[in-house]
């Protein structure tokens, strides 16, 4: 059981107002991802929940009890750090067992729990090694093993995959998702990689400058961002924002169109443009174009298309995929 609720949580470092006040509900068993640009306070918020930082003000409720002034150990949460933070002087076995030892578990219970965690994480052959003699992925698994043996109310992950290479990252992403499906324990996962956010989350929390910009299911954020910031942050490549005459036509300050929501033609269309760079990835093609009178835009086409530098093209946005924003950057109802 791990339902977590933040009520007006505030954090200041000296005069620096890092978290001006966050309200958030995390349901039991949910996989919640915090995303946002670097320095927006994701780690700080996670550390507040963990108890590694003291809140300046506000309440943190875990299963209904306010734990804002409790020590980390009392909160029954486990954390996986970006740097893994394994105990370098202990074997893998002892790394995983440390929390159980601190909790005063008997030798037999420890043995059983460590072995079963090692089995889930494919670490059985490495139990006698020191962390220094493991690969990055294995270290990551030890860190996760250390977290799961304690049967926490929730797991906290702070960018756990950012030190791994791309291929391993995809693997570990799937492993963590699999783990969540198996354990059904609440997980809070911090990342600035929006692909991780989109693929793993039940619920995404988009943060900017310590404020929650939007909370919702990945597809909700993709389809109905509440403001320009979320619209630009979710989705890759980034949404194109176009102002001027074109926006006036849609009766708003600015419109946003995702790169994948254009029809491309070499003959006719709404927006004439010139290709600057074409990136051919095989499965898809990214065209970086200069639209006449509108500036640079990015367009994404599926498959291979035979276009290159200086080619003239015409773009037509899918009408029901156009996002409209007012002068404050807030989203207006779809036209």
């Amino acid at each position: 059981m791990g339902a977590i609720r933040l009520e007006k949580v505030k954090k200041t470092f000296g005069t620096l107002d890092v978290i001006p006040g966050v309200d958030l509900d995390i349901n039991d068993g949910e996989f919640v991802v915090f995303v946002g640009p670097s320095g927006c306070g994701k780690s700080t918020l996670l550390r507040l929940i963990a108890g590694l930082e003291d809140v300046t003000d506000g309440k943190i409720l875990i299963n209904g009890t306010d734990v804002a002034n409790e020590a980390p150990a009392k909160r029954g949460l486990s954390m996986v750090f970006q740097s893994y933070a394994l105990y370098p002087h202990m074997t893998v076995y002892n790394n995983i067992a440390f929390g159980l030892k601190m909790a005063g578990e008997s030798k037999e219970v420890i043995e059983e729990k460590v072995q079963s965690a090692a089995k889930i994480l494919n670490l059985t052959d490495y139990l006698e090694r020191r962390p220094g003699a493991l690969s990055g992925g294995q270290r990551q698994r030890v860190a996760i093993g250390r977290a799961i043996v304690r049967n926490p109310a929730a797991f906290l992950f702070d960018e756990p995959l950012s030190n791994l290479d791309a291929a391993l990252r995809v693997n570990m992403r799937l492993e963590i998702t699999g783990l969540h499906q198996e354990l059904k324990t609440t997980m809070i996962y911090v990342t600035h990689d929006q692909v991780e956010a989109m693929t793993m989350a039940d619920k995404i929390v988009v943060l900017q400058a310590g404020r929650v910009e939007q909370v919702g299911k990945p597809m909700e954020l993709y389809n109905n961002p509440t403001n320009k910031f979320v619209a630009g942050f979710i989705g890759s490549p980034k949404m194109n924002f176009l102002g001027g005459e074109l926006a006036k036509k849609y009766d708003c300050h600015e419109i946003g169109i995702r790169p994948e929501h254009f029809a491309i033609s070499t003959e006719k269309g709404e927006i004439p443009a010139t290709v600057k760079i074409a990136e051919h990835l095989g499965a898809e093609t990214y065209l970086h174009v200069e639209a006449d009178g509108l500036g640079p835009m990015t367009v994404r086409a599926t498959g291979e298309i035979p276009l290159g530098e200086h080619d003239k093209i015409f773009l037509t946005p899918e009408q029901d995929r156009i996002h409209r924003f007012d002068a404050q950057g807030l989203a207006l109802a779809k036209s």
């Binding site: 590694l52 020590a71 150990a73 954390m79 750090f81 933070a85 105990y87 440390f98 929390g99 304690r150």
Partner: peptide, 26 residues
Amino acid sequence: PTDILEAARMDGATLPKEIIFVLLPM
């Protein structure tokens, strides 16, 4: 790295245990 001591704290180590079992050996 402070992380390692924080990990010990998350693992339920009290301050004396954190110092004796984690900090000092390192």
